[in-house]
Computed example of a mutant assay.
Amino acid sequence: MPEVNCYDFMASFTGPNCCLNYSSVDIFLKYELQPTSVRTLVHFSQTFRRGVIAKYDYESSMANMAAYGESSPPEYHMSNIPHDLPLLLSYGGGDMLSDVKDVQLLLNDLSNHDADKLVAQLVKEYAHMDFVMAVNAKQLVYDGLIAFFNKHS
């Protein structure tokens, strides 16, 4: 049986990560993989297919009614996030799970947010896993994140 290249495996659903090394991937795969429920994956799929951020759809009017008091799952309206809540959105140009178009849609929904409380940082070369394991994530992401927290604490 041929060996699986974990870089290629991850990149097939996260995007082309730029800044990983084998030792960080090995540690991640050994300790950090967490299982998720099928329901969570179905919910992600519903959001992706419908293009709407809403609560889980039980695919039954009766079940939705029992859960939510209405026949369809209610939508989450990002514009309802308090305008003075500090938000930092850091996203990657190569991220296939949280792509640039989706982040732009979110930023449109947040257009009335207090300008001094919303920071959007695009790291063009990053894909999804780079934010967790890139060798340069401390400098490109986490130093700015800590500064943001310190400013808004």
Rank of each mutant, 00 (worst) to 15 (best):
L110S: 12
Y56C: 02
V141Q: 07
D116V: 02
P35A: 15
K30F: 03
L145T: 02
A54I: 00
L110C: 00
E32I: 07
V38I: 14
Q121H: 09
A67K: 11
Q34M: 13
G51W: 12
L85A: 03
N80Q: 08
A66T: 06
I53R: 10
S45T: 11
T40D: 13
Y76W: 13
T40S: 14
P35V: 03
L88H: 04
Y126N: 01
V132L: 14
G69D: 11
D84Q: 13
M78F: 14
M78R: 02
A134H: 08
H77V: 08
I53Q: 08
Q34N: 03
L122Q: 11
P35T: 10
E59T: 04
P74E: 11
D99G: 04
D102H: 10
S72I: 00
K101P: 06
L85P: 01
L88M: 14
Y126D: 11
S61G: 14
A54V: 01
Q46T: 06
Q34S: 14
L122I: 03
A127V: 00
L89N: 02
M129I: 05
D57M: 14
M62L: 15
T36M: 12
Q121K: 05
N136V: 08
D102P: 05
Y31E: 05
G51V: 09
D84C: 14
F44V: 06
D114K: 13
D109N: 15
D57C: 06
N64D: 04
